[in-house]
Structures are given as C-alpha cells and as structure tokens.
Design a protein around this nucleic acid. Structure first.
Lengths: 205, 205
DNA sequence: CGTAGCAGACTGACCAGTCTGTTTAATTTA
DNA sequence: TAAATTAAACAGACTGGTCAGTCTGCTACG
C-alpha cells in the first residue's frame, strides 16, 4: 500500500506524530503547517512530498489515533476475563489517558470530539471519518454490553444498542467538561455512575 | 451601563445577533469579521466603534446567549408545577432548540460547548466565561434536583451535586454526537434515560 | 544516472485591526 | 427657533502579518 523506503516512512511517521500532538493540544486551525514541520524537523517541500494537503494530513492522524487507541484497549482487554471487566478496563484506559495529559500540564479532551466540533463546517471528509470512528467505538461498547448481558453480569433488560450510545455521549461530554474546567473529575465520576448503574451494589439488608 | 442611543443600540444588537448565529453555525475562527459585518449590515469602522476586538465580541455573544437561554427556561418553568417537571421542561427546551436547528438544515450543537472546544487555547477569558456558564447551568440543575428530592418526587439517595454534573456532561455529549452525526436522536435518548432513571416506572406486577 | 526524497524561497489569499475622514443628531446659544 | 457647535455614530480604504500551498532546484541512494 505504501511503497516507502524505511527512511521516508520514518519521516512520514514523525510528521504524523507531531501533527497528532499539536492538533490534540491546540486544535486544527490554530496549528499552522509551519509549527508542524518545525516540530517534525521537516521542510515544507518534504512535507508536501508526503501529504498533498493539510486535510489529508488530519485524515491520516485520525486513522493513526484510532489505531493506537484500538491497540491500547487490546492490551487492556488481555488482563480482563469478563466482558464487564473489559468494558470498564476500556473506560479506565480513557481515564488514564486524561490523567496523563493532566500530569503533562494540559487536559486535551477527546482527539475525535475536539476535531469534530472544530471542523464540522471545514471538512466533510473529516466529519465523515469521525462519525465512522464514533460508530465503530460504539460497536465495541455494544458488543461488550451484549456479552455482559449474555453472561448475566449485568441486568438483561438493558438495551445494548441504546446504552452503548448513551455511554459514548456521557464519556464525550465528560471529556468536554473536564477540558473546559481544566481539571479532571467528571470522567471519573461518570465512569463511577456507569459502574454502579450496571453493577448495582448487592442489597444487604 | 451602556449609554447608547436607541439607534446605536440597535446596531450593536444586529452585530451581536449576526455574530451569535455565525459563531454557532461555523465556529469562531471560520467566521471572519467581514462575514459578520456584511450579515449585520455594518461597516468595519462602525463595528470597531462598538467592539474593541473580535474577542470582546465573542465574550458579549456568550453573555447574550446565556441570557436568552435563561429567559427561555423561565418561560418553560412557568407552565410547570413540580421541580421534576421543571427539570424536564428545561431539558425539553434544549431538545426543541436542537430540533429547530435540524429543521433549518443544520444541527449546530451547543453554543458554549462548541466554542469551549474550539477556543480552549485561543482565549483564556472566553474559556473562563464558558466555565462559569457551565457552572451556573449546573447550579440550576442541582437546585431542581434538590427540590425534587425534598418533595419526594425522586429517590432521596441521589446526590444532587454529583448527578447534576452528570446530567450536564451527558447533555453536552449528546449534543456533540448529534452534531457529528448531523441527525438528532441521542439528546432525546439521553433525556429519556434520565427520565426513566429518576422516575422509574411503577412496579405493577 | 535516474528517481525518490528533501530543501526552502516565493505567492496569493485572507483576515484582524487601524486610520482618516464624513455624516448625523443632540445640545447650546443668540 | 434657527443657526452654531460638538460629539456620537458611521464609512471604507489600507496595512501588516499569517498561512496553505507551489515551484524550482538540490542530494543521495539504488
């Protein structure tokens, strides 16, 4: 698919890594190409040898980020046995990422949610791709919920389709609020709520 | 506070109305001053007579929009008797606004959430103001929840502070998702969930 | 020795904000 | 009450800077 030599591939990877970081921290519009190429230690001409436009670049970062996220949850799954554990392992992963950004000095919010809101009118391809990514993420959640229902880990009257969408929106909203307030807390609180809702404490009275 | 003649006030109002609409639909950065002044039928010089910068303008639109929203829910409250009704009247108001935008051709999302994500690194005053607005909105929700608990309309083991923040994030996330997908549905689903959660159907068996 | 990969000056469009005025309307003054 | 005065309100050309993208050429590797 990509007939690049190792060196060229490395250049491309540097550009993608720098762009991902800058887009996440400062957004798409506020990130000039000049900043990206300085950060990636690449020149203008070299950049445009690898990407035909800034839009193509951001599309590539979306793919990259979702891929990295996917492999991240794979490893989170490996230490879980039940579907319910996997679900909350996944959400815990998001929390860990947020915490990491916070420790680094700035809560970034969701890479996809941020770009979706910022670029809704700027680029239809970007919008479409983020829509697909959200859909894929929701599918993962739905699947885990279905498995948890099947295994009777959670109540069977929960509608996996509806509830997975609800989780997604609650998580996105929490990331937005935490970013706005520049202090974590809401995402953790939301995950707590979901945990309690799905696994209500045993009635001990 | 503002010693403007009626005519000048009208001009200022036109600018604010046009800017609010354009910021909501296309965002802050994508909305050039030229578009605003054309839409508001005002010239550059006249604009800068009323506002000293684009940032001051967006700060003023934030105040205006929150004010309009507040008066909107006032009237929604007037037809409600219980706190619970008021709460869902308020949420229904948000739903109605989204539906209206959808009918007009484009789901806009939340004015405040959109700008918060887009301008997080662009303007600290804007970020601060949105943070305050969210906080104020949450206070309204918390107050309604407390009243509903007091009146025994909802379960008393609900923590108003925690749950009001949860509602806020779920609503913001739903608006984000509906905007991304450019189709309504999630906000309605989220409100439904909240309704069922707070007012569980009577056990009739 | 040819082409993949890289270098960087250059272009044209756009955009927030400025500057120098002109018009309008309210207030003063005779 | 009508002319004079003054400041509010408006007009729009202009500026300086930024930014995505281009162009022409250089380097180095296969």
């Amino acid at each position: 698919m990509t007939p690049f030599t190792p060196k060229a591939q490395a250049t491309r990877d540097r550009i993608l890594a720098s762009a991902s970081e800058l887009f996440h921290v400062n957004g798409y519009t506020a990130t000039g190409l000049d900043k990206i190429i300085v950060e990636a230690k690449v020149t203008k001409g070299n950049f445009y040898y690898h990407f035909k436009s800034k839009e193509e670049l951001v599309l590539a970062t979306l793919d990259l980020q979702f891929e990295e996220f996917s492999t991240g949850i794979e490893s989170a799954f490996s230490t879980s046995s039940t579907a319910s554990e996997k679900l909350f392992g996944l959400l815990g992963q998001l929390l860990a990422i947020e915490q990491e950004h916070f420790n680094q000095g700035k809560i970034r919010g969701c890479f996809f949610g941020n770009l979706s809101l910022e670029m809704s009118t700027l680029s239809e391809p970007v919008q479409k791709k983020i829509k697909r990514i959200f859909s894929e993420f929701q599918t993962i959640l739905r699947s885990l919920l279905e498995q948890a229902i099947e295994a009777e880990e959670i109540a069977k009257d929960i509608d996996a389709e509806t509830f997975s969408a609800f989780i997604l929106s609650a998580v996105e909203g929490s990331l937005l609020l935490d970013k706005t307030n520049q202090e974590p807390g809401q995402l953790a609180a939301t995950i707590d709520f979901l945990k309690t809702y799905l696994n209500p404490p045993r009635i001990t009275r």
